[in-house]
Every structure is written in structure tokens, then in C-alpha cells.
Amino acid sequence: MWDRIRRSGTRIVDSLRTEPPTGGRETRTHNLFEAAAAYVSACAEDDQDRIDEASAWVSPEALSFGVNELACRAVIALARERDESPRTVARALLGLPAA
């Protein structure tokens, strides 16, 4: 009896999966921060194939959040390194005049 319940549960869970079955191969899922790091580095290197690949790892909303978080952390780290305010660093990176 428990075996039938387990098989039914497995079928239900499998039907809810959004990714196609892998045919026995284990696939690795990526989190939004991995996707953001891959996406931003691919953009910096102008590698469209890697941009497309990283974009497919997570939803557009999650990727946007990850890119935003990466930008904030990068500006903070650079500001600490330069001993400047994050605002000054962000404006300098974008080529804007000092406020």
C-alpha cells in the first residue's frame, strides 16, 4: 500500500516539474546570483552565447534582482577600496560629473 502511495506522489511531483526529464543525467540548477555573475561577466566580454545561456537559468525578474545586488556589492567594494563614497564611485563608473 505504501508503495502505491509513494509512486502516486512521485508521479504528481514529476508532473509539476518545469524542466524536461534528463534521461538519467543529473542536471545542476543555478541560483540567481550565479546567473547574475555569469550574465554580467558575459556582457562585459560581449559574449552573446553566454548571455543567452545565463538568461535562461532563472526568470527575468530574478536575473534583474541578481544583477542589481551584484552592482550594489561591486560599488560598495570599490568604494571601500578607493576610500570614497558609493555615490561618488557609481557616478564615476557611469561617467557622470561629481554631484
Rank of each mutant, 00 (worst) to 15 (best):
A56N: 13
A77C: 08
D14C: 00
A92T: 07
H30R: 14
E26W: 01
T29G: 04
A77W: 04
D83V: 08
D3N: 09
A77Y: 07
A38N: 11
A62K: 14
A54D: 08
D46R: 12
S59P: 10
E61R: 12
R17L: 03
I5L: 15
E34N: 06
N68C: 08
P60W: 10
M1E: 14
R4N: 11
A37R: 10
R91T: 06
A54V: 06
A92C: 00
D47R: 09
P86T: 06
Q48E: 15
A62Y: 05
E45L: 12
A38R: 09
R91P: 01
R91H: 05
S59C: 07
E34P: 11
A42N: 02
R11A: 11
A44L: 08
V89P: 02
E84Y: 06
E53G: 03
R6D: 14
W57K: 15
R91C: 09
S59Q: 09
V75I: 15
S8H: 09
E84P: 10
A35V: 03
C43P: 03
A35R: 01
W57E: 15
L70E: 04
A71K: 09
I12K: 12
R82P: 10
F33K: 10
A35E: 03
E45A: 14
R80V: 07
I76C: 05
P86E: 10
D3A: 08
A54M: 09
T18Y: 00
P21N: 01
R50D: 15
F65K: 07
V40I: 12
E84K: 13
G66I: 01
R73G: 15
D52H: 07
G24S: 00
V67L: 04
R6W: 00
R80T: 11
T18G: 03
A54K: 04
Y39C: 03
S55Y: 08
D47L: 07
A90L: 08
R11H: 10
R87P: 01
V67A: 04
L70Q: 08
V58C: 13
P20V: 02
E26H: 01
I5R: 10
F33P: 01
P60I: 09
G66Q: 00
T27G: 03
G66N: 05
E61N: 13
Q48P: 02
V67D: 04
T22E: 04
V89I: 13
E84Q: 13
T10M: 11
V67G: 02
H30Y: 12
A77D: 14
A36R: 02
R25K: 14
S41D: 14
R17H: 05
R82M: 12
A71Y: 05
D46C: 09
A92P: 00
G23R: 09
I5P: 11
E26G: 02
P20W: 01
P21A: 06
A90E: 08
D83Y: 02
L70C: 03
A56F: 02
E61Y: 05
L94M: 12
G23Q: 08
F65D: 13
G9E: 12
D52A: 15
E61L: 12
A38H: 09
M1N: 10
R25D: 06
R73S: 15
S55M: 11
T18P: 08
C43I: 05
T18S: 00
W57Q: 15
